[in-house]
Design a protein around this nucleic acid. Structure first.
Lengths: 140, 140
DNA sequence: TAAATTGATTGTATAATACAATTACATACT
DNA sequence: AGTATGTAATTGTATTATACAATCAATTTA
């Protein structure tokens, strides 16, 4: 196995994470943080879900998702649909505002990434996407 | 330009960052967090440096690096070398313990990544490393 | 030598997370 | 039916990484 490649990945991942961590904390393009964004996206793509399901999918603690969901509800980006079979449970659905905010935020992110990668070839961009996806899937 | 590839990168980056953020906060393989690790590594590879230089290289606030350096000094992983020309300044060098800890930690990280990527081809690993590096460089 | 600048630290705030305790409801067991 | 156990969600508390502002001490400049 090619140790050099692994070392390179190991280092560059550390750098990437640290870099983007600080960017997200200071800058904050729109009104959404990364986690909020992923929640809205998930709901838009796969439909309403409760905090437990979301927490499992994201591999986060339920309490973490609960707070994020509460914040999103408070901003009127999500609303609750009570579970008819279980008085404790509910699921979360996008409001119209949430849908709009999601779309705006996604556009901003996309724009930023497009700028960052403007000198890349199409081939490189495609491969980078594929490999990132594959990497994320290795975690599951 | 291939919008689909960009969208994929955009999404997978968000996922990657969130995932690794939570891993580093809960798990913590060894005694080092990511930033501490990058500092030690930088010093090992490029020699002693003061907090200002490190902060610039890492694009972090000086105060952040100052605290990290203080923590590493406290653990006896780094020691200060006073600047002979400027009574305020100093640079940081690895202690023997720091060198050892760095090497152990790096091994652990490498091991973990090796496991994660064990099903990948050499070619894929190599490309992923190269593209991550290129991506990180786009930030500069 | 007084004023401005600079390297570093410290105070304070924020954000994302986890774990533990709690609340309120649901299910299962005699 | 009633108690015990389990479960969805929230809330309290702690930690970690970060930034920005204030400060301290030394240096440089006018």
């Amino acid at each position: 196995m090619d140790v050099h490649a692994l070392e390179m990945i190991e280092l560059e991942l550390a750098i990437l994470i640290r870099r983007t961590t600080s960017i997200s904390s200071n800058k904050k393009f729109g009104n959404l943080d990364r986690s909020a964004y992923l929640i809205l996206r998930r709901i838009k793509e796969k439909g309403a879900a409760g905090v437990k399901v979301l927490a499992e999918e994201f591999k986060l603690d339920i309490s973490t998702v609960s707070r994020q969901a509460a914040a999103l509800e408070h901003k009127d980006y999500l609303y609750r649909i009570p579970d008819p079979l279980d008085g404790r449970a509910y699921s979360l659905q996008l409001t119209e505002q949430g849908t709009k905010e999601l779309s705006d935020y996604k556009q901003e992110r996309l724009k930023r990434i497009t700028e960052l990668l403007e000198d890349w070839s199409d081939e490189e961009r495609k491969l980078f996407g594929v490999l990132l996806e594959k990497f994320n899937q290795s975690f599951n």
